[in-house]
Design a protein around this nucleic acid. Structure first.
Lengths: 223, 223
DNA sequence: CGTCAGATTGATTCCCTTCAAGAAGAGTGG
DNA sequence: CCACTCTTCTTGAAGGGAATCAATCTGACG
């Protein structure tokens, strides 16, 4: 049975008004700060807000009853998430590291949408993009090998984190990667060292940074 | 390597104006009829229309370069799909059996949305629901066993096809189920006979019908 | 310096895939 | 209506990729 058993580390829920520094962009959102491991909301919570990432990374995930976890997405700067069709959140969300987000009241959404065509379009596009990412990820989860999964993941992260730079820092740890790709931490680790030995990537002994040395070869694995 | 190699069966693209019987519901869609295996659109096609299923089932899927296929969703009556963030379709769509759909011009969408609050809400809700389904499915693909996958699938299909009836007809064949659940047809077949032997389901020797005999036990496998 | 979470590496197991026949229908044409 | 064919489904045997089990190693931090 694969799947990372949910650790009981630092899962206080983010206190709301406390950390709110009110700001008012286009559509009056509230800025919040979260620290590593803090929970933004949990599956089943009332979906009072939806969110936009300002900095850092959020993991959104679902759990099975026995603790197996699937991280369906990492949300990075600019990403919008947490909007629901019903009244409850259908997944949980936590800070991967230190994170800044803006919270938007969902109750105001319809009003805002009515008035602000730009904002409306932005929300719709963001939602469709989340759906697109989900579709790509289903292909990965259902049909790719461990090597292909890691190659896809690294290329995607490189693009989103560094804008096509060779070198970047992964914000998440191995267990997060494993639970995102439908693997175990051992397989993630083994595959990465395998990539290192093949000269595809470079992993500095310390820290979470990573360099892609052979994008070509990774892309070949990707598709 | 798992994944069903795309068969070259009946994949003519649905001719458009030919089969259109113009109708005009709320937002002027065009009705179309497709037969088993017919392609509605392919990945990369210009996303001129999006669709609503009237009857039958549509499979939407992605392919890897070597033919491995992932069916990300089956769209049944009432489901809306094919709306994209960009200008191109990011997945392909085919008729599972005989299907009726309504096609909506995407270019008109912003105009319609501007005017018709009800339609707008319906589109947004449909999109969010597709996202929700995708998230549930990622959990299945990444973390569930073959038995759990089938149990989840059967319960979902029962609910969507028969409205909690015991007995219903699966519109798709084994290879579709396999490519949806990230399994092979052999594993699907074996697991179903296993369920039959355990008295969880009944599979009439002929045809695609199925009866759920022990919903409880299936639900236990599901979560 | 000791502790601890996280990462790596090795040995073994097992679930699902792959390979390989057969069986059962569905459709076709004589 | 019945051979004939083709597709789909089922079943069996064997193999493999990733999971599991089990240490060990590393850096971070008090």
């Amino acid at each position: 049975m694969q799947g990372h058993t949910a650790t009981a580390t630092a899962t206080r829920t983010a206190k709301f008004p406390a950390t709110i520094g009110l700001r008012s962009p286009m559509a009056a959102g509230m800025q919040m700060v979260l620290t590593r491991g803090e929970e933004l909301f949990a599956e089943g919570d009332e979906a009072e807000y939806f969110y936009k990432v300002v900095s850092g990374a959020i993991r959104s995930y679902k759990l099975l009853s026995d603790g197996r976890r699937q991280i369906d997405a990492f949300h990075l700067r600019g990403d919008i998430f947490g909007l629901e069709a019903g009244s409850e959140h259908r997944f949980s969300a936590e800070a991967v590291g230190d994170v800044q987000v803006i919270a938007y009241r969902r109750s105001r959404l319809s009003a805002i949408i009515e008035q602000d065509a730009v904002f409306r379009d932005r929300i719709m596009t963001a939602t469709l993009r989340n759906l697109q990412r989900a579709q790509d990820h289903m292909l990965l989860l259902g049909r790719k090998t461990a090597q292909e999964k890691l190659a896809t993941f690294l290329l995607d992260m490189a693009e989103r984190l560094s804008g096509d730079d060779e070198h970047f820092d992964l914000p998440m740890q191995r267990s997060d990667i494993a639970d995102h790709l439908g693997l175990t931490i051992e397989t993630v680790s083994r595959t990465l060292t395998q990539f290192t030995r093949s000269g595809l990537i470079r992993l500095p002994p310390a820290g979470r940074s990573i360099s892609l040395c052979n994008r070509m070869a990774l892309k070949r694995l990707d598709a």
